[in-house]
Simulated assay, not measured.
Amino acid sequence: MFASALGLATVGPALAQVPPLLTVPDRRVVPGDAPDLGSDAVWKFAASLGGSKTSGNTDSTQLNVTGEAARITDDSKLNLAVRGFYAETNDTRTGANLYLNTQYDRDFTRDWFGFGKLDALRDHPANIHLRTSAFTGVGYHVVRTSENTWDVSGGLGYTEDRYVRPAQVAGALRDEYGRVEGVLSESSSHKLTDTTSIRQKLGVFPNLKNSGEYRVVFDAGLSVAINSALSLTAGWTYRFDSDPGIGVNKVDTVWVTGIGVKWD
């Protein structure tokens, strides 16, 4: 058997995502911490690539790519991210999705901030031709230091799913399904050593149109720096949808590793 790999992806059902690559300092100065980035802070960029290829008794291909950009000022943060995953075994596609995300946070006091968030997901193995979401709300900085951050937030938004095949969702056979959703979220980042950092984010999205239904999204990631530009990355993603449609799994998970590069 021949195998080559930039990284490894171990996948449950589809819907892979990789946690954010960029770890940026807090936007406001805390005494003893890093200096203020200023209102004209530069953009920061990161990208990660991982995959594997085998041939012989089993022919398989796996590839995951992630790109992220962030612009930080003294009182705001704009984050843009794109993530893609593809897997094929014996000429049969076993996973394929593309995820786009943008979020803007702006502080209106030392501890409180407002946010706006847009998401788009394409995942045919999960019967999602296109899922689009828009949310807005407020959040609170529970912890804000140069080495540790922890935010909690909540808000409202709207999500619309368009399906690859008609799905039995919310008691009816549908080609698409739109609904108002709430969002309750917490996220944190931690610098464990000079070279090692971790991040995690949990979001719960209750369906306000169909009581009792909800989605859960959890991402966790580890980054170990090789030098100032390169790092080894690992991530785990968990997705739960209480009403994805008949014949579609409620839970999607993915493990990924890869090599990341950062630049300003």
Rank of each mutant, 00 (worst) to 15 (best):
S133A: 05
V248W: 04
F218Y: 13
G182F: 00
V11N: 09
L232G: 06
K44M: 15
S228R: 05
V183N: 05
T102N: 12
G137H: 05
V152M: 03
D243S: 02
K53G: 02
D107R: 14
R122W: 15
V24K: 08
V169E: 07
K262C: 13
G51M: 00
P13K: 14
Q200D: 05
Y177F: 06
V216N: 07
R27M: 09
A16H: 12
N97M: 06
L15P: 06
V42Q: 12
Y214C: 02
S133H: 07
F240S: 01
P35S: 03
K209H: 10
V164C: 09
G56A: 00
T10D: 12
L49H: 00
G114A: 07
E147L: 14
L80T: 01
A16G: 10
E181V: 07
D175H: 10
R199F: 14
V11R: 14
T132E: 09
R28E: 10
S189D: 03
S133R: 12
G235P: 09
A3Y: 08
V143D: 01
T233W: 07
Q103E: 15
N64P: 13
Y99F: 15
T102R: 13
T94F: 07
Y158P: 08
S153D: 03
Y214N: 02
V42Y: 11
G245K: 00
L6Q: 03
Y163N: 08
K53N: 01
G95V: 00
L100K: 11
P166M: 08
Q17S: 10
A229P: 00
S211K: 09
A170L: 13
R165Y: 13
S39D: 14
P19Y: 14
E147I: 14
V29E: 05
G221P: 05
A170H: 07
F85Q: 10
S242H: 01
A172N: 07
A14I: 11
D111V: 14
F115N: 11
V183K: 13
A120N: 01
L230F: 07
L208S: 00
Q200A: 03
L6V: 13
V65F: 10
D243T: 03
A46N: 00
T193V: 02
D75E: 04
F205W: 02
D91G: 11
N90Y: 02
P19R: 15
I259H: 05
T253D: 10
A47W: 03
A46P: 00
P19D: 09
G235F: 09
R106Y: 12
D252R: 15
R179C: 04
I226E: 01
T54S: 01
V204R: 08
S60F: 04
W263S: 04
S188F: 15
V183I: 13
